[in-house]
Design a protein around this nucleic acid. Sequence first.
DNA 1: CGAAAAATGTTGCTTTATGTTGATTATTTT
DNA 2: AAAATAATCAACATAAAGCAACATTTTTCG
Lengths: 254, 254
Amino acid sequence: MSKYQQQIENEIALRGTMTVAELSELLGVSDQTIRRIVKPLEESGKVQKVHGAIKSVENPMTAPFQIRMLHNRRAKAELASKLVELIEDGQSLAIDTGSTAGFVAQALKAKRNLTIVTNSAYVASTLSMKPGNRVFMAGTQLRDHDGASFDRTAFATIERMQVDICILTVGQVHPERGFLVNEQCEADIAKAMSAIADKTIFAIDHSKFLPATAAGMVKISGLASKPKIVTDLPLPKSHCRFLKEAEVIVAKLG
Amino acid sequence: MSKYQQQIENEIALRGTMTVAELSELLGVSDQTIRRIVKPLEESGKVQKVHGAIKSVENPMTAPFQIRMLHNRRAKAELASKLVELIEDGQSLAIDTGSTAGFVAQALKAKRNLTIVTNSAYVASTLSMKPGNRVFMAGTQLRDHDGASFDRTAFATIERMQVDICILTVGQVHPERGFLVNEQCEADIAKAMSAIADKTIFAIDHSKFLPATAAGMVKISGLASKPKIVTDLPLPKSHCRFLKEAEVIVAKLG
DNA sequence: CGAAAAATGTTGCTTTATGTTGATTATTTT
DNA sequence: AAAATAATCAACATAAAGCAACATTTTTCG
């Protein structure tokens, strides 16, 4: 058994199918190693192997959000621990939804006496387990794949509050258009959270800095203040111009 | 216990996997020390060790709650799967809070297209991950140890709805006084949920059937209908008289 | 303060995983 | 159907991680 096993399982679960060559390229190991790791996974029925490809066996219990939570786990964890260094005990925070936000919530358990408002049931649940925290769940009806709310009561709850720091995530960062998300309602929540916060921090892992392909995505506009960005790897050159205005913090050089 | 143990646990839980070398680098201690600290963690099942890596046992979605749900884990799991047999795809449910409710939520992921209203952020988060479910989180401000809400909006949300089945938990069952919980607000939520449901089912593991010691507990009163009870072991004699009115389902004989 | 205990570091050796080569089997092409 | 291509597998060499025993440091407690 190997240290790569978990990541291999995650990648296959996320993408559905992977070739041995793709995996060995991705992890930077030989194809032989991939085969050796995949073999027991196949024998235990976790994945299915055909000549030339490895397929994930469909698991109806595993929802997309949980899979995304496992993808790029290390990168998001690095990023989250770095971001948490910017937070002090006792501060009040607004946190939006998404798998990166989930990691930030996990990492925030190292802090004490926080006040949090979030529209993500996962973030709310995670942080309310920590004694001393005050957590407000914004919204009632939850979206069915990630447990986030975008209803009127969500906005009403957020607008009633005032926080020190707002922590936002994005779907991708476009080299010119900037911070993009998948739905209009997500952009609206981001704007609302930013409006009640003194500072805004974006938590963005490197996989979100994509070239200029932004089909069907919505721009986050009307931020209340100049944002900080926390990321795990140095930015690609393509994005430096857009982001030279922002303060960028890189968790891990490499 | 070493001062590094907690941090090591956290880092592994957050990132999913860590190598001994990474941990020793991170904490500034020798690799041998890391091994010595990890060894008891592995033996107690908190982490899993493979050559070259240490893996977290739980995935990050469920880790925090699982840990607090260790008590009577098997009993609650048995009970939950028995209870779920009473639920059909497409039904609407009201679910209250507590670790037993958490297990019920886990087990309910086997069902499809449920509509759920709950005052527990954990239950809401768990069930909203399942595509096809409609989940309503009742309440805004969450209690700081279990992520449950008992504020006015919680009651307002519950009262606005109508469900097929209401699933409740209790703090203990008193041989004469009946269903008891720790706080008045918990009893109020139970009553409110029962009022909007056609049927009420109590999920009660055997550890809740205590002799007549009920210091400082509050009775659940005003249930809308005769309740079903699902439990894991046969009832103690002391409770049979009180419960002979109720329909009792035992998950596991013995 | 000082001895005992616990925790950490160091060294050398053992075990395990990974990489490489070349042969074997499956798939596609002509 | 045979040749060409791609994927797989086996076997050995190498690199990496693990482990045990002893040395050293730090902590605990009388």
